[in-house]
């Protein structure tokens, strides 16, 4: 797997985009496992499935723009021993088909992997109808569900491959059509449910996921010049949460800043707060989308407007130092 992901040809195909990485990982798994089947909700190009269409056309099911049916079909396929990978737009594959997701996939505990592209404010100019800022909360509230938010294309590849080890349903939240800077090491091999430590500071901790990991690293670099040692954890799995890493951060540093491209309600920050409130109360700050719908605009500019930036993470860290 690592060999494929460091291959220049693969890197060129992925173009630092986790959405393509997901589809290529599914294609790769399909080549060695006849049970792997992709279901597309009009997302063949969005999610990098064209190569699989060429290599194994019978195992790419185009469901059309009909997410409810796509989700139910995925569950039915899973009952027969197939391994469905359901590819859709994050705002639609979660909210539109939420009842199928809850009943047919999570409640019936079927092994369906959902690849949700264009999460967060990736579709910034599309406006609020196309933003997905509540999907982590929705997925995290479902029993049996594993929830992953890879930080870059390589991690998306590894975590998608790692779903082979899961018995129940899972959700992989991925990005869109723009470059996502690499933050994970080429030889990294993330384990579902285990945070990756990217900086080993002992003053404050930033726990970030997805596109906010690179912002957390930039904040840590800025704060290092001020003599503040920031621990940065890449929490690529929201559920099950890495309890040990969170509780160690609570015990060993002055406080925790949670950073995510998601509403402040119900996401990564909420998950961390629920844990430390009971087991090791500590000071916390939250970086994420406030309780409002986001404005229209270019993704990074909109993120910055609502504080999802390295600068704001640094502000929150300084507050915890005081």
């Amino acid at each position: 797997m690592s060999a494929a992901s460091t291959n220049p040809e693969w890197v060129a195909k992925v173009q630092n985009q986790s959405r393509l990485s997901f589809g290529l990982a599914v294609t790769d798994m399909a080549a060695r496992d006849d049970r792997v089947v992709a279901i597309s909700a009009d997302t063949l190009d969005l999610i990098g499935l064209r190569e699989m269409v060429a290599a194994a056309p019978e195992r790419v099911i185009e469901a059309g723009i009909a997410e409810q049916n796509a989700m139910g079909m995925a569950s039915g396929l899973a009952t027969t021993g197939m391994r469905p990978y359901l590819c859709g737009y994050a705002p639609f594959i979660t909210a539109r088909s939420m009842e199928q997701l809850r009943n047919d996939v999570a409640y019936a505990n079927q092994r369906v992997v959902i690849g949700a592209a264009c999460s967060g404010i990736v579709l910034g100019v599309s406006g609020g109808t196309h933003h997905a800022l509540e999907d982590i909360a929705l997925m995290r509230s479902l029993p049996n569900m594993t929830v992953m938010v890879p930080a870059d294309a390589l991690e998306a590849w590894h975590l998608t491959q790692a779903t082979e080890t899961l018995d129940g349903p899972s959700y992989v939240r991925i990005g869109g059509k723009f470059d996502e800077p690499a933050v994970t090491a080429v030889d990294a091999s993330p384990t579902i449910g285990k945070a990756t430590t990217l900086r080993r500071g002992t003053d404050v901790t930033v726990i970030a996921c997805g596109c906010m990991v690179v912002e957390a690293l930039a904040a840590a670099d800025e704060l290092a010049s001020e003599g503040i040692g920031v621990r940065v954890l890449n929490m690529h799995t929201i559920k099950p949460l890495d309890r040990d890493a969170v509780l160690a951060a609570a015990a060993e540093t002055r406080g925790i800043v949670a950073a995510e491209e998601h509403h402040l309600t119900g996401g990564l920050g909420g998950a961390i707060a629920e844990l430390v409130a009971e087991e090791h109360p500590t000071r916390m700050r939250f970086v994420g989308m406030p309780d409002t719908f986001a404005t229209v605009g270019p993704t990074r500019k909109v993120r910055e407007k609502y504080g999802m930036s390295a600068a704001n993470i640094a502000v929150k860290c300084r507050e915890l130092m005081g």
Binding site: I61, G72, M73, S75, L77, T79, M82
Partner: peptide, 13 residues
């Protein structure tokens, strides 16, 4: 929808 998924699973196998 579930039944269709089951039927497609049968056909694929």
């Amino acid at each position: 929808s579930i039944g269709l998924g089951v039927a497609l699973g049968a056909r694929l196998q």
